[in-house]
Structures are given as C-alpha cells and as structure tokens.
Amino acid sequence: MTNKICYASKEIAEEALVENRSRHYHSENSGPINVYECRECGNYHFTSQGEISELIKKNKSKIDANREANFWERKLR
C-alpha cells in the first residue's frame, strides 16, 4: 500500500492533476506532471516522471491564473 490517491479514470485523474497544479506551487518540471494507470490496482495516480501532460500544457494560463488567485486568497485571510 503506497497511500497514493486513486482515481477511477484517466479523465478524473487529469482533472485532479490540473486542480493540484492550480492549488500548489510547483516549478515548471517538478511536482506531479502527468497521470498513469497502476498495474497493481488498475486505478490512476499522479507521477512526477516522464513527459508533462498535454492537459497541463493546454491549461497553463488557467493554472497560472488559478494559482495566483489561490495565493492572494490565502494571503488575505
């Protein structure tokens, strides 16, 4: 057991990945950058290895804007 969060589908995992990248600051090539299907459990998990997800690339401006909004929301509490 690895304590990794399990996602039932690739689509759900990718949505969660974009949300994770929006909420947490990760430099360009660090943190979770893609998802993979686990051979042991059949679910999807985040990975920091390999290529950056196309979904992250396509949503970079949205991720950056959400990250900025989250930063200011936390700072102004």
Rank of each mutant, 00 (worst) to 15 (best):
R77Q: 11
E11F: 15
S61Y: 05
S9R: 00
A8S: 12
H24I: 12
E54N: 12
Y44V: 05
A8L: 12
N66Y: 15
E40I: 09
H45I: 08
N29I: 05
M1P: 08
E14C: 05
N70P: 04
H24K: 11
K4I: 10
T47N: 03
E19G: 04
Q49S: 14
I52T: 07
A65L: 07
R74D: 04
E73V: 04
E19A: 07
N70A: 08
N29Y: 04
N20A: 10
E54M: 09
K62I: 09
K62Q: 11
S53D: 00
M1S: 09
Y36S: 01
R67K: 09
D64V: 03
S53H: 05
F46W: 06
A65Q: 06
F46D: 00
E37V: 12
S61T: 05
S48V: 08
R21C: 00
R67W: 15
E51H: 14
S30V: 05
N20P: 06
H26Q: 07
K4G: 07
L55V: 11
C38I: 04
A8F: 14
K62H: 14
E37H: 14
S53G: 00
S22V: 01
S61A: 11
N43I: 09
S27I: 09
S53K: 07
E73A: 10
E28M: 11
E14W: 15
L76R: 12
N29K: 14
N66M: 13
W72R: 01
S30T: 10
V35M: 03
E19H: 15
P32L: 08
N70E: 06
H26P: 04
N59I: 04
N29F: 01
G50S: 01
E19N: 13
E40S: 12
N3C: 13
E40C: 12
K62D: 09
F71R: 01
Y44G: 00
K4R: 13
P32D: 04
E14G: 03
L17K: 08
H26T: 05
K58T: 03
D64M: 10
R74I: 03
K58F: 02
R67S: 08
R21I: 03
H45M: 05
E15D: 14
G42R: 08
S9N: 01
I33S: 00
N3R: 13
I52A: 05
C41D: 05
R39Y: 12
S48A: 09
E40P: 07
E15W: 14
A16P: 07
A69L: 09
A69N: 06
K62A: 08
N34M: 09
N70D: 03
I56M: 04
I52M: 08
R21W: 07
N59T: 05
N66W: 15
E40Q: 11
F46E: 01
N3L: 14
V35I: 10
S30L: 03
R23Y: 15
I33M: 02
G50H: 03
K62E: 10
K4A: 11
N43Q: 15
S48E: 10
W72Q: 01
V18M: 02
I63L: 01
K57F: 01
N59V: 03
S22G: 02
E28W: 02
S53I: 02
V18F: 06
F71E: 02
H24A: 10
R77P: 09
T47K: 06
N70S: 06
N70V: 04
